[in-house]
Simulated scan of single mutants.
Amino acid sequence: MRTHRARAAALAAAALLTTAPALAAGPACAQPAARKGTPGGLAVVPRGPDQFDVVWNDAGMRLRSVGWSRAAGWAPATTTGRSAEGANVVLHGGPEALTLLRAVEGSLVESRWQAATGWRHDVVVAGAGVARTMAPTGTMTAVTHATGEVDAVWVDQQGGVRAARRAAAGTWAAPVQVAPAQSSGVGPDQMGVAAGAGPAGRTDVYWRGASGDVQTSARTGDAWSAPAALPLGGTTGGLAVVQAGARRTLLFSAADSQRAAEYADGGWSAPVRLGPAARGSGVPRAVGVGDRLEAYWAGSTTVETVRGAGDRWSAVAPVPGTGVLAAHSGRQAVVPWVHGDRLELFYIDQNSRLATVGRTGDGPWSAPTVIGSVA
């Protein structure tokens, strides 16, 4: 009896993971013809204590996903057939529903999957006509607050920074300008943008300014503050922030190195050099592990990592077995994710395959597991 129950549970979990990325698109968004691009946009969607999905954009620029559960392992990858550029920003994940924010054909699109209805793709900001200047590039992020409100932030087609808020009930407000278009040669795809949730519903946003400096603005209530430069030196556009209450750590790519600076007690610390610069304009990705941060990025020969906080960081170390990453995987080359006492690191290898290595606690890294092709 126990064997039958275990098998039934495994089959049920596999069915859930396999059907989660069902191919039906909602009526609000017609399907465009498939296009050619480069795989990227890796993100992890939590679905439950022992269950998650990994999503990415394939070479046809379609959203694909593969699910894992402790009961059933990896399920077959599936495709929604919906073209997209750049990041897949996770807004919500659960056993019965998930929500992603994506840039599709120059529009900001909320892609939602529900167990009962499958996928629906709704345009939030149209990328045509008057709204064209507000339309997002693939450089975007979002912050979900404890109240259920969401602030989406993106770089627009002219190099400005825009934002839109979604109420807890699901209604999106009209986009607003956070920063005007760049007046220099820094293009939208070189800017980078990061955001974190502060206390009392505050949203802090960071991006690369016209002179290569780190710029910031904050939303409190219904208003955004005027953009201001931070005294952190220059950045090449790779930005990530980890925020906990009033304390925040900003990781960014400089011309010669990866760096970190911490905000506490009303001011920013001097930047700390973490290690060599990432390949291309890759973004350092960081997660909280216990009382420290761990940062990961694509090095010249392997994924590299450091751990620490404030001004105390370890030496840079390679992640064993990861090897050279795909040259085209760019800003979403490496995605760390923590569930329980397990840290999983997902990446696109040089053979355009989705792969992962993992570690339990402070134990050794596992050998790489190749999940499948991302093309």
Rank of each mutant, 00 (worst) to 15 (best):
P284D: 03
E304C: 15
A240E: 14
D291Y: 06
A261F: 03
V303K: 02
W207C: 01
G237N: 00
A254Q: 03
T235G: 08
L250V: 09
E294G: 01
R285V: 15
G299V: 07
W224Q: 07
V241F: 01
R285T: 05
A226M: 06
D265V: 14
A278N: 03
A255E: 12
A277K: 04
V214G: 05
P276V: 04
R219F: 04
A210T: 04
A228I: 11
G245C: 08
S225G: 10
A278W: 07
A255P: 13
P231W: 08
G234A: 08
L239F: 07
A270H: 13
E294R: 06
S211K: 14
V303H: 13
G280P: 02
G234C: 03
D265G: 14
R292Q: 15
P227L: 00
L239A: 01
A286C: 09
W297D: 03
A298Y: 08
W297K: 04
S269N: 10
A255T: 12
V306Q: 08
R279T: 15
A244Q: 12
G233E: 01
T216H: 11
V242A: 04
V287T: 04
G266S: 02
T220F: 14
G238T: 07
V289Y: 06
Y263N: 10
V283F: 12
R247W: 04
D291S: 14
R273N: 11
F252H: 01
P227H: 00
A264D: 11
P231A: 06
G238D: 06
V306S: 08
T216S: 13
P284L: 07
D256P: 00
S300G: 10
P231E: 04
W268A: 05
A278E: 01
V306E: 05
T249L: 10
V272M: 09
V283E: 13
T305N: 06
G234N: 06
G266F: 00
A277F: 02
G234E: 06
